[in-house]
Amino acid sequence: MKRLLVLFVFITGGICHLSAQDLNARVQILSPQVQNTNKQALTSLQSLIRDFLNGRKWSADNLQSQERIDCSFVINVTEWDGSANFKAEAQIQSSRPVYGTTYNSTVLNISDKDFNFQWSQGQPLDYSDQAYLNNLTSLLAYYAYIIVGMDSDTFSRFSGSPYYVKAQTVVNNAQTAGFTGWKAFESLRNRFWLAENFNNRDYAPVRQVLYTYHRQGLDVMSDNLEKGRKAIFSSLPDLQIIDKQKQGSIINQVFFTAKADEIVNIAGQADPKTRMDLYNLLSSLNPPNIPKYELLKK
């Protein structure tokens, strides 16, 4: 009872019988660096990936079509041997609607530089939660569960937990795969660590902020701008707990990659002291985005 309670009950005041899949995914495959690309094969793969993401049940909720989670997968093929071996990068984004507005707030915006896989034209996209079958469907399922988990967390406190567990299962199943991104020792900021962070209670403050920021902040602003804005600003210091204990963690980076611009926009009409306090906090928590936060001092 996540999106139903937040969006549908508020709007209709009643309970509806719902049926649909979970994602409204847009998929784009690019290949500007690949010569003599078989465009037909990539077009076919693009359709297969879109159908795979949109045609499966990833969550336990029953959503109407207008409640499906908007997301996008932009896959940039950097190398292709013309057969089955692909090297690629992917940009994955998701957003959720803000109550009482037409605005969609970005929840996830992540770049995966190791989105490599094998696929042959005509090959179906098979997947199982119980076993690793191939890297492409494991990648897609992993990010589908992360998207659903984060979306759930923004509507109901800590309700994304079952989906982060599923993402961790995808990681565990892929440990014997010959592809980069699944193993702890390969990087401190890869798929392994993102799933680990979301499942680790030490990072619960970030998930709490996801809920407060969206449900008590953004969703309130159309009725009470100051109340919603205050909830957002007062939630952000909780991220210092993670920053002090777990410096360099991927979960903080993922949060700010999605939210830096939005926070600056929300703070645009705040008083000078509030903006300066935010600048000091955000520049400490998220140094890579300091140029964006400089706007808060103007």
Score class of each variant (00 low, 15 high):
Thr101His: 06
Asp238His: 14
Arg207Met: 07
Leu108Tyr: 06
Glu226Pro: 01
Gly178Asn: 15
Leu188Met: 04
Pro287Ile: 14
Phe52Arg: 11
Tyr211Trp: 13
Lys273Thr: 14
Ser65Gln: 13
Gln168Gly: 14
Gly181Phe: 00
Thr78Gly: 03
Pro97Gln: 05
Gln46Ala: 04
Phe255Asp: 09
Val171Cys: 03
Asn173Ile: 02
Arg3Asn: 08
Ser235Cys: 07
Thr176Leu: 12
Asp114Cys: 04
Ile266Ala: 06
Pro237Cys: 01
Phe256Asn: 12
Ile75Gln: 03
Gln121Trp: 02
Thr212Gly: 03
Val27Met: 05
Gln66Ser: 13
Ile29Asn: 03
Val9Thr: 10
Arg56Tyr: 10
Lys273Ile: 13
Phe115Asp: 01
Gln168Glu: 11
Ala258Asp: 09
Ala260Arg: 15
Glu196Gly: 00
Asn265Phe: 08
Glu262Ser: 10
Thr12Ile: 09
Ser59His: 06
Gln21Asn: 14
Asp22Lys: 06
Asn199Lys: 05
Asp202Gly: 14
Glu262Asp: 13
Lys87Ile: 04
Arg229Met: 06
Arg56Thr: 09
Ser283Asn: 10
Gln91Glu: 07
Ser19Tyr: 11
Cys71Gln: 03
Ala84Arg: 13
Leu239Phe: 12
Trp193Ile: 08
Phe185Leu: 07
Asn265Met: 10
Lys273Asp: 13
Thr37Met: 10
Leu285Val: 13
Ala131Asn: 08
Arg50Tyr: 06
Gln247Gly: 09
Ser235Val: 11
Gln40Tyr: 04
Asn200Ala: 02
Leu188Phe: 01
Tyr145Val: 00
Gly14Val: 10
Lys166Gly: 03
Val220Pro: 01
Gly122Phe: 09
Thr43Phe: 09
Tyr127Arg: 02
Leu42Ala: 06
Phe73Arg: 02
Asp219Cys: 01
Gln40Glu: 14
Gln46Arg: 14
